[in-house]
């Protein structure tokens, strides 16, 4: 494991969304066109996208304890899995690790969408503009000492430190949080052999759509996926409209494959 990691402490998040904007500011990302709210409560846009690499999701308020309602607001970005599906299935080896962070080499990316299909967290997305896949690179491609999102966070809900310290802090914090929220949990210690975004939650991870025990794609299957995408990308001759068709076909092939 590389030593750095993010700590998302949802018990300290006030939902100011500075992370979402600071990322766009530092990385020169444009705004998305939205209407009303795309997700629960104030969530906007709905999810991560090729131009939104940090996202704040507002969950519905849980009033099961009327004296102490829970409103969870969760920062999400690429989790930078130690064993990353996206990296395993990329047919062009465009996805690699830089200083331990999972990044996409834009020169090599062909926008095939393999990574999009295989990330269980739905992180990377292919842009409609340049037809390449984009996501958080922890500011290593646009370097600074502390990534823009964590640097901007006012309350300490999103911090950046050595991964070991992050885990230690998270475990200590969990003990305190459990006093008020007995189901509180930490996510990211072990999934995909360790994520680089550790999240403290007031309830169990499944409540927030986080899969507790995901299995990394196995190497044989990853190879067959790479071959399929490569072939389809080749036959689409790099023409965006054809590529689109190819992606869709690839996705269905892969999904069929997965079901089998």
């Amino acid at each position: 494991m590389s030593e750095k990691a993010f700590l998302v402490d949802t018990t300290k998040c006030s939902g100011c969304r500075s992370c979402q904007v600071a990322c766009k500011q530092w990385n020169n990302l444009p705004a998305e066109k939205t209407k009303f709210f795309a997700g629960p409560e104030l969530t906007n846009p709905k999810e991560l996208s090729a131009i939104t690499w940090n996202h704040v999701k507002f969950f519905e308020v849980d009033r099961s304890n009327p004296d102490h309602p829970i409103w969870t607001i969760m920062h999400k970005k690429c989790y930078h899995c130690e064993v990353a599906n996206c990296l395993r299935v990329c047919p062009e080896k465009a996805i690699y690790k830089k200083d331990g962070w999972v990044v996409i080499d834009q020169e090599k990316c062909i926008g095939c969408g393999a990574c999009v299909n295989e990330c269980i967290y739905m992180v990377p997305q292919v842009s409609d503009i340049d037809h390449k896949s984009h996501k958080c690179h922890a500011c290593v491609m646009n370097p600074r000492e502390i990534p823009a999102c964590a640097f901007a966070c006012p309350t300490g809900a999103l911090t950046y430190d050595n991964r070991l310290s992050v885990i230690k802090t998270a475990e200590k914090r969990l003990k305190e949080v459990k006093k008020d929220f007995p189901n509180a949990s930490i996510y990211g210690r072990d999934q995909f052999e360790g994520l680089k975004v550790i999240t403290i939650l007031r309830d169990r991870p499944e409540k927030y759509g986080l899969e507790l025990d995901p299995k990394p794609i196995d190497l044989v299957k990853a190879e067959s996926i790479r071959e399929t995408y490569k072939m389809l990308a080749f036959f689409s001759l790099g023409i965006p409209s054809l590529k689109r068709v190819a992606y869709r076909m690839a996705k269905s092939t892969v999904e069929k494959d997965r079901r089998a």
């Binding site: 530092w26 990385n27 020169n28 990302l29 131009i51 996409i104 390449k132 491609m141 646009n142 370097p143």
Partner: peptide, 15 residues
């Protein structure tokens, strides 16, 4: 890269 949003995706010199 004031125009292109892709600027952030490339390994860039100090902004």
């Amino acid at each position: 890269g004031g125009v292109s949003f892709l600027s952030g995706c490339k390994s860039a010199p100090d902004k």
